[in-house]
């Protein structure tokens, strides 16, 4: 599994909910630099738990190495500068009253000056085609707009890795297409958990299949779609 171009290496990742219920059991995989890596699986298979673990937001068992650094308490904050996370629900991600303040939150946390943060906000909004939205109140945005702004909050620090949790859920067809174009056009390493198999086919290079908290497969996209039986077995079709 160890390769020079691996940006993420996960070995024996396990997690149990506070009640003791198993969410993940012995999951191992690797993500290569610049690839679009999809995490698929039915509801409750542990996709979101896995993504939260990659951000060091849950106390897990096992080993996670990101950009060559062991994911533990030390240097975690600095590592988060290099990883962007887009939550499934944009109302969770966007917690500040205005768009500008929300996008500027990350740069402010990492000590960027006011002017520099403003410039970064402008660039991030341009990247998601939402220029001029700085002063808009977050609660007045449509769901699709919120999703794009949520992406801008993750892009603002020019991360090396971007993690998306169900990026296309609840989006109308036009917003979904726009959002997929945005994700597809990014150069960084992208990891996304999704049920949207059309998105997997369109954007992903490789896929990790989770089933009942365990790794069921890690393969390229073509191999996944070659076996309709497996897709049905894993409740993906």
């Amino acid at each position: 599994m160890e390769r020079r171009d691996n940006v993420i290496e996960v070995r024996g990742l396990s997690y149990r909910y506070p009640g003791g219920e198993r969410a993940l059991e012995g999951v191992s995989f690797a993500v290569r630099k610049g690839e679009a890596f999809a995490v698929v699986g039915p509801n409750g298979s542990g996709k979101t738990t896995l993504l939260l673990s990659l951000m060091g937001l849950l106390k897990f068992k096992g080993e996670i190495r990101i950009l060559g650094h062991q994911l533990n308490g030390k240097g975690l904050r600095e590592l988060r500068r290099k990883i962007g996370f887009v939550f499934q629900d944009p109302d969770t991600q966007l917690f500040m009253p205005t768009v500008g303040e929300d996008v500027a939150f990350g740069p402010q946390q990492f000590g960027y000056s006011g002017d520099e943060a403003k410039r970064m906000v402008k660039e991030a909004l341009r990247a998601v085609r939402m220029e001029g939205y700085e002063g808009r109140f977050t609660h007045r945005l449509s769901y699709g707009e919120k999703k794009k702004i949520a992406l801008a909050t993750a892009l603002v620090l020019s991360p090396e890795i971007l993690i998306f949790d169900e990026p296309t859920s609840n989006l109308d067809p036009a917003s979904r297409r726009e959002f997929l174009d945005l994700i597809g056009g990014l150069n960084c390493t992208r990891i996304f958990a999704t049920h949207d198999m059309d998105m997997v086919r369109r954007i992903a290079d490789r896929v990790l299949v989770l089933f009942e908290g365990r790794k069921a497969a890690e393969c390229d996209v073509e191999s996944l779609f070659k076996s309709p039986e497996n897709l049905r077995k894993w409740r993906l079709a």
Binding site: L52, M55, L57, R77, R80, R81, I83, F85, F87, D89, D91, T92, Q93, F95, F105, G106, Q108, Q109, F110, G111, T153
Partner: peptide
């Protein structure tokens, strides 16, 4: 929701200090 928002803040570099 408050727990989820706290996670979102932490993911973006928040460590309990007001900046």
């Amino acid at each position: 929701r408050s727990e989820e928002v706290y996670r979102a803040m932490t993911a973006r570099g928040y460590d309990g200090k007001e900046r």
